[in-house]
Design a binder for these strands. Sequence first.
DNA 1: CTGAAAGCGCTTACAG
DNA 2: CTGAAAGCGCTTACAG
Lengths: 344, 344
Amino acid sequence: MAIARTGSNLSQIAALLGVSSATVSNALSGKGRVSAELTEKIRATAADLGYTPSLTGRALRTGRTGVLGLVLPDIANPLFPQIAQAIEYAASNAGYGVLIADSRGSVALQTDAINRLIERDVDGIIIVPRLGTRIADIDCPVAVIDSPSTPGNTVSADHWQGGQAVVEHLVSLGHRKFLLIGNNPASNVQNDRIGGMKSCVPEDGHADVLWIERHEQSHGKGSLLGLQKKVEAGFTAFVAISDLHALRALTELQRAGVAVPEDVSVTGFDDLVWSSVITPGLTTVRMNTAEIADVAIAALVRVIEADAGSAIPAGPVVAAKRSSVPMQLVVRQTSGPPPKAQIA
Amino acid sequence: MAIARTGSNLSQIAALLGVSSATVSNALSGKGRVSAELTEKIRATAADLGYTPSLTGRALRTGRTGVLGLVLPDIANPLFPQIAQAIEYAASNAGYGVLIADSRGSVALQTDAINRLIERDVDGIIIVPRLGTRIADIDCPVAVIDSPSTPGNTVSADHWQGGQAVVEHLVSLGHRKFLLIGNNPASNVQNDRIGGMKSCVPEDGHADVLWIERHEQSHGKGSLLGLQKKVEAGFTAFVAISDLHALRALTELQRAGVAVPEDVSVTGFDDLVWSSVITPGLTTVRMNTAEIADVAIAALVRVIEADAGSAIPAGPVVAAKRSSVPMQLVVRQTSGPPPKAQIA
DNA sequence: CTGAAAGCGCTTACAG
DNA sequence: CTGAAAGCGCTTACAG
């Protein structure tokens, strides 16, 4: 009924060499309290035996598991896998495992998810919060990935600047009438993006916001956004706050016989996988997920390893200082609006 | 330097009530060796103190961590998040946590990922293997989610039957000339899907396979599949082995002025998020990820909990018997080919 | 029905 | 430079 691991443990190595397991531990951890030649010998036999330390044993002793929790609103939503991948990669490089928890739709489940992670003794938690969640007093270091306009400390992409980048580019192509497309006026991320977009609409330009209604979101076939009318009304730039909405707009316009990008431009956000594959490709904006993940993980690790020194257990700690990472424009549609539209 | 947990531990509860920690343990685990009234009292104070057991302590003692590893080829690929979500949900319901490992592109990294999980003492591993991987002797219970035509035991959707469902439906709409679109002739999943499709092409019908080349996959703008020519050649059904390829085909056709679904039909596979949002919606086929996850997790849990009885550590065990779960057709395009095409 | 003891594998003061 | 001992929190035979 021993731990079902391949290998040996410290005391086996110790017995084999006639030393104490403390010495083996010290030699392997390289804390320098063991002579060079003994260290060498110990390392060699450890390698021979294929020894890997029991992280469970270590965790019980040190109080740290080397595992972080990642709480996501909805893994199946195409926005989050990129973040999950980046977090997993950054955590893994920092020597941490990542336990996932999907909050699947409700704030209540999100709280459950966080509690389950804490019960599993994670050393820290990365949360991509659901709309409107305040991360209450969690007894564990936390890093929040959200929008810069969320109150409190967060790590995030600079969604405002991303919105600016898109509209600046469209303005430079000659566009003046913008239809901004979102679906959730309560979302900080969406508001940041739209705010940035609006801030770049020139004096002689105009922007409307189209908020897609909830019942239009879970639509069957035939639930259109009425974009053809918008084209007739002179809008030439359809600026979505996500690639998914952009895709919806693009197919609706194409289906209606509107030529993209000759007649109108369609832009998205996030550079999801299909953006580069469809015809025409989607001009979009990409967050630097690797850097966001690195910042979040680094902050978390700093707090965790600082705690190791102190006798006081970590209280509710928000690990990262506010930091926002620039987004990058990806241009795939280069034509401007047709002359007649420019006159109108 | 104690474990940084909110709460109390067994011996605190024991001390408070003047009983032994063994009794507390037995009372809480409900193994029935404690009188009803004492059990009640112990439970009450445990609840008062907000006691949650240390899973690390338990793991060290029992040799089981209550954590499963999930190895995915590429989380950012839109196929996998659905599976990840279903696995997390099923595992969570079974009382297990899920540690993720992304094998990010190479078989070597997949092996690393598996090893990292094993070093973290996971009780079992769910692998969605990279192409062509043989799951070698892993010293840990394993469930593989793949295609039914993969050798060895796997849990999977019945991709062949899914392919049949799509083509049967298209045949019933009147289609006879099918262009099947895939990108990887080495993939068991793709071959199953295409095999099923071909098996349903009627005597008077015809199917070609278009394998998208690798350099066409990572294309910039303007790399087209030449589908317009296929339309001219009389193909009316564009049957992709994934929604992503279907989307690519749909936008290329729309851009070329081909009316979908009036002139030709486009179908996909997997019912990814955009399938229901674009215009026209994509007819596709959905795997029952919940059931696949349940089967995989149940099989794994059975092996793990059986091992608990035996003194022999778990060898390489493939947990699940071969089982394949039917896929479900989702119809979003209902028109057949135009009469002229039916004549041709 | 209840308790005392051992031990999972590790690391860390402390003593030599 | 090296070792003996304690202890992280739990569960499980075993004894009473």
